[in-house]
């Protein structure tokens, strides 16, 4: 890759200073071991190392919510966290919500309410909605709108997204599984 001897040395030194770290994450119920560089975001670890491409990269800057996953049941933006920092945590992505062939109630509701068009924001919307239900702070439709504001939908499916969440919220008031 590098022609000059100097550059080769630099590369070697870099590799010694920053060896890939071995971490264990529990992803969708399975203990998973992977080797990542310190600067690998959790989002990139999921998508590029584990082929869990359901979680989407929209902005990569915490502004859109497409990368939302649940860490120990709490929703976060996986683009703004380092994989190494999540060592030992329990992570749920959109791929982990269904029980076999049975969709998660929120997945079902999103289909029934036509809560998406292109679908790019949808995994993040659904994981965020699971987090919202775990938090238990949303009571009204306005609360849902405010507490889902971290998820942007380019297609503008907002009305139906709120309909879907409201329905599940009112039929399943207890926190649903992570």
């Amino acid at each position: 890759m590098y022609r000059s001897a100097e550059n080769e040395i630099v590369e070697e030194v870099e590799n010694q200073v920053h060896p890939p770290t071995s971490i264990t994450l529990k992803i969708n119920g399975t203990e998973t071991r992977l080797h990542v560089a310190p600067w690998t975001s959790l989002l990139d670890a999921l998508r590029e190392y584990l082929d869990l491409t359901g979680t989407k990269k929209g902005c990569d800057h915490g502004q859109c919510g497409a990368c939302t996953v649940l860490v120990n049941g709490k929703r976060i933006n996986s683009c703004l966290t380092l994989a190494v920092m999540k060592e030992g945590t329990d992570i749920t992505t959109i791929e982990g919500l269904a029980q076999g062939e049975a969709l998660h109630p929120l997945q079902k509701a999103f289909i029934e309410h036509d809560a998406f068009q292109c679908g790019y924001c949808t995994p993040g919307q659904i994981c965020s909605a699971v987090g919202l239900m775990n938090e238990g702070k949303a009571k009204t439709r306005d609360d849902v709108r405010e507490l889902m504001s971290g998820n942007i939908c380019r297609c503008g499916a907002y009305t139906n997204i709120v309909d879907a969440i409201e329905e599940v919220m009112h039929t399943q008031p207890a926190p649903c599984h992570e």
Binding site: G62, R75, N77, S128, G131, L147, G150
Partner: peptide, 9 residues
């Protein structure tokens, strides 16, 4: 401030 996801982090 921010969003629920960001406030969780």
């Amino acid at each position: 401030g921010a969003s629920p996801q960001l406030r969780n982090m």
